[in-house]
Design a protein around this nucleic acid. Structure first.
Lengths: 191, 191
DNA sequence: CAAATAACCGGACCGTTAGTCCGCTTGGTG
DNA sequence: CACCAAGCGGACTAACGGTCCGGTTATTTG
């Protein structure tokens, strides 16, 4: 990364680390940017220069966590990557998201809160939604694919994930999501 | 209502009216309680005495709007009310919610934002969820009814409703929700 | 109708938070 | 080493949700 000063990169990392630390230590609501700045040992201005806003900070944190999945979808091996039949790709994708969500509940909640207005503007959400929409459209050309993709992503709402995993753990969420997908995307039964 | 002073009732009404007015005039985010107080011609303290908090205000506003549906479900005629087969009741219920949501986008968004933490604490949401859970459980005893009920209610997320209806109007939302429900709740196809 | 009282009212006040700004510092470069 | 743009910190602002209390008023009772 030419043109990026060393201290800038170091501070950026420190801020991200401090944020996730506070996120797991206190609840997702209790993380103010002043606290992040203090924990990271930087001034508050630095946070805003790097990330633009509270929203931007949590978006980048989520993007970092989601990067592995993104790569696997784009260039990895099937069933997550290209090549597998749509139904398998979709199941694998949703399962990966379920695992991600279950392991990052606090981040998901904070991200949701920060992106409250216009959550569809978040680049990570968009990528997920685009991918899902394409798969759904292949499987159910008759349905409102965009709508269904949003509803599927609704499975990873912070509150819902917390509730679901708190009684039943990650397994319950994965099972529920798998069942949801196969019910939704089974070939429509004739009338 | 014995024991409730006339001015208290009048102010309560004025606050609710002012809130919905500001809600439709400006966006759902642009409604501060100072503005509501000014528009209603009361002091800010009055809002908090009546409604407890911003959250409480929007909860009551939604409850008011949802009251008709609640009554119809509890004591009205089928298919919304008791007596119809579960699938018909569920379809009718979701359709009623779709119409309600499409007609109250700003309120839904504001309510969501105000109840951001622990949205499941809202009494209206709970009632809806309980009703849906019971119906889903009847139709799909094998599935995670609580989870599915939450996902179904995810269809009425403020952003999603706005997006869906902005291209396709209320009809698109109703159709999408109906299709979603019938796909989800059709008798599970054999393995 | 008048006095008594409990409920109610308004808006000044407070603490917190996202976001801005500018004078100082520092890492990179020729 | 000297220069300078990029980066930095933290005081500052504006706006918001929520609290508080001295004054007001609807209602009740004799």
């Amino acid at each position: 990364m030419p043109g990026v000063r060393a201290d800038a990169a170091r501070n950026r990392e420190a801020i991200l680390r401090a944020t996730e630390e506070l996120l797991t230590a206190h609840g997702p609501d209790r993380v103010s940017l002043d606290a992040v700045a203090a924990a990271a040992g930087v001034g508050k201005g630095t946070i805003f220069r790097r990330f633009g806003s509270r929203t931007g900070l949590f978006q980048e944190l989520l993007a970092e966590r989601a990067a592995r999945i993104g790569e696997a979808v784009a260039t990895g091996p099937p069933p997550l990557g290209p090549g597998a039949p749509p139904h398998d790709r979709l199941s694998a994708f949703l399962d990966a998201l379920a695992v991600l969500a279950a392991g990052n509940i606090a981040l998901i909640a904070a991200h949701e809160q920060a992106c409250a207005s216009d959550k569809h503007a978040d680049p990570t959400y968009r990528r997920w939604h685009d991918h899902l929409t394409a798969l759904v459209r292949e499987l159910r050309p008759d349905a409102d694919a965009e709508f269904l993709a949003h509803v599927l992503l609704g499975s990873f709402d912070g509150d819902l994930v917390r509730r679901t995993t708190s009684r039943g753990g990650t397994a319950r969420l994965r099972t529920a999501v798998r069942d949801l997908a196969s019910a939704l995307l089974a070939p429509a039964p004739g009338p």
